[in-house]
Simulated assay, not measured.
Amino acid sequence: MKKGAALDGHRPTAGTAAGASASPVADVPTRDRVTQLLLERGATTAAQLGTALGLSPAAIRRHLDAMLADGDVVAREEAVRGHRRRGRPAKVFLLTDAARVRCGTHHYDNMATAALRWIARTGGSAAVETFAAEQVAALEARCQAALADAGDDPLARAAALAAALTAEGYAASATAIATGGQLCQHHCPVAHVAAEFPQLCEAETAVISRLVGTHVQRLATIAHGDGVCTTHIPTQPGREQSGRTVTTVRTDR
């Protein structure tokens, strides 16, 4: 993305009247920014995108309509948990698989999937689980080093883990919520492979549990069609579980 690009991607120039339509080339920087926000945040409303980019509702709608037509985004109703407000749910936008690929994600998916299929055929599910655990071992070691000064509080460790995962390319964030904490990963480099082999997600969740030092719940994953991988960290951890238990909970059904 070019520095100094106009936020709305079509700042008038000397040869363009203020009210004239922007050229497709001039729209590219803004579409890059929209793509980056959707990559980082997952499912997002047009209003949220417009606010983040400083665009009017009409301007952000123009970009989203173009991206819908090009197959870069899809729209769906926002999932509402708990009490549902009156009226229709807001519409949210997500990147398509093709757009994620152009962001540099999912490299070597076909080869990785073929390799895991071979492992499953020759060694069974246990062999896939062992492979998945070994794959995340190096990541765990690097993140463990990054958490050396984070203390014992699970939420403080989650915040440090989010920074470590972001450095690893996961675009992660950690927030405190009423029931504890929430760790979100806005990018998954193996989402396509994990869609067929959930052992990869399970191994990663086990790593998160060990690193934050408490029981965690995986609420959503990009591999299963969610916009963000979301892990819940309860306020009152079950210490009797020695901080090693992992629970996967699907909340999008």
Rank of each mutant, 00 (worst) to 15 (best):
L53N: 04
G104Q: 05
E196L: 10
A6K: 09
R218H: 05
A148Q: 15
P29D: 03
T30V: 10
R250Y: 12
L219E: 14
V136Q: 02
L94K: 03
G225E: 10
V92K: 01
L49I: 04
Q199H: 06
A112C: 00
L94W: 02
A52F: 09
H187T: 11
L55Q: 14
A148W: 13
I208W: 06
D153A: 14
A145K: 10
R84W: 00
E202C: 02
T45V: 10
A220Y: 09
G238A: 14
V101G: 00
V74C: 01
A160Q: 13
L94P: 04
C201Q: 03
R11W: 10
E168R: 04
E168S: 11
E78C: 01
V212H: 03
A59Y: 03
R11N: 14
A43M: 08
Q135V: 12
Q217C: 04
R81Y: 15
T221Y: 09
A6L: 13
D65V: 10
A126D: 13
F197T: 01
C184A: 12
V207F: 01
G225V: 06
A46D: 14
I222A: 04
A164F: 10
A17D: 08
P198L: 08
W118C: 02
T51G: 09
D153I: 00
E134S: 12
V74Q: 02
R86Y: 00
H187L: 09
L7A: 15
S209N: 05
T230A: 15
A26I: 09
S23D: 14
C184P: 00
F197R: 05
G225I: 09
G19H: 15
H83K: 10
G238T: 11
E77R: 04
A174H: 08
R86M: 03
P189I: 02
G225A: 10
A133N: 04
G123P: 00
A127F: 01
V80Q: 13
R11V: 15
L147G: 13
A162T: 05
R11Y: 11
Y108C: 03
F93G: 01
S125I: 02
I177L: 05
L38G: 03
V216W: 03
R100W: 01
L94V: 06
D109Q: 12
C143Y: 05
Q182G: 01
A20Y: 06
L219D: 11
R244I: 00
A164H: 13
E129A: 08
P237R: 13
A115P: 00
A137V: 00
G213E: 07
A52Y: 11
S125T: 12
T179R: 13
E78N: 01
A98I: 05
T13M: 13
G225T: 05
T248N: 14
A162G: 07
H232P: 02
N110L: 12
T231E: 00
D32W: 15
T51R: 15
S21A: 15
A133H: 05
M1V: 13
A191R: 07
G104D: 02
G82Y: 07
M67I: 05
T105A: 12
L161Q: 10
T105V: 07
L39S: 02
P29H: 02
H187Q: 13
A52N: 11
T113Y: 05
A172H: 04
A148Y: 11
E40K: 03
